[in-house]
Amino acid sequence: MKTTGNGNPWLISGFILVIFLGGWHVLTLRPSFEAKGKTEEQLQMMEFNGDIVRTDDGGYGWNPDKMKGVPGPLAVLEKARVELGEAFVKKGTNDHGIAYLVMYTVSRFAGGFLAASVVAIMLGVILGLNRVLFRAFNPFIQILKPISPLAWMPLLLYTVKDPKWTAVLVVFMAAVWPTLATTAFGVSSLKKEYLHVAAILQLSWFKRLYRVILPGAAPTIVNGLRISFGSALVAVVPAEMLLGELGVGYLSWIEWNNLDIAGVIFAILVVGVVGVILDSGFNKLASLVTYQE
């Protein structure tokens, strides 16, 4: 198919962003407080309730600390400015700066994902090389694969008795199946000539694995890792929420408990940014191990 279009995609992206932010701003705009038509008594009651405050010119205005409705982009920006300003501050046991929260989430994610990848690739290679084992394990993999990783959480929490490790294990359960299935597939569909060359050259078991099998199956394995990566990233946020483990997913939930909707939106954006950063790191890694045939 011939693709059409010339011009700068960034310009279009910027345009979409402006439209979105502008629309968001307009839709969440609140008309300024109008004191006209209200009795002095009513105004005093509203001031007493904290809905309005006296302004410098002697009139009344909405209390900026008591926001109603969905906050606009400026409020979120202000929230982000404050949060990023305190990124490295620990105010209390449950109130750590955003930099710490990102670090907790990333290390939790990395721990579960890496452990799952190692286990899945090792098992996948074994199953990929042995048809009988593959067929023996396949029914179990098929049953376990579609289970939502979050469904394991109560059982994991009960058995490991530690929410920290439970969160890591939930990420593990999310990440292990796609990599396992694709590694087994990639290894089993490796061109037999490569294995023949390895056999003729009398490569040791170790060399056969590291010089032939793993690099040969690498493109397929990377595809599995990519799926695992996404599913682990999706699992880490609700795991933090449900377990109350400090992290960016938990941030979203705690801001909800504070009824700080700007904070919730900020937390959502942080989750997105963390995902993008992890994903680009993953792509860099993937480009190192794939090859063209």
Partner: peptide, 20 residues
């Protein structure tokens, strides 16, 4: 019996490792 370095094959589809 079994493959060995004393009997090297040149394959029809080359069998070069594409990652090397």
């Amino acid at each position: 019996s079994g493959p060995g370095l004393d009997r090297m094959v040149v394959f029809q589809n080359f069998a070069l490792m594409p990652w090397m």
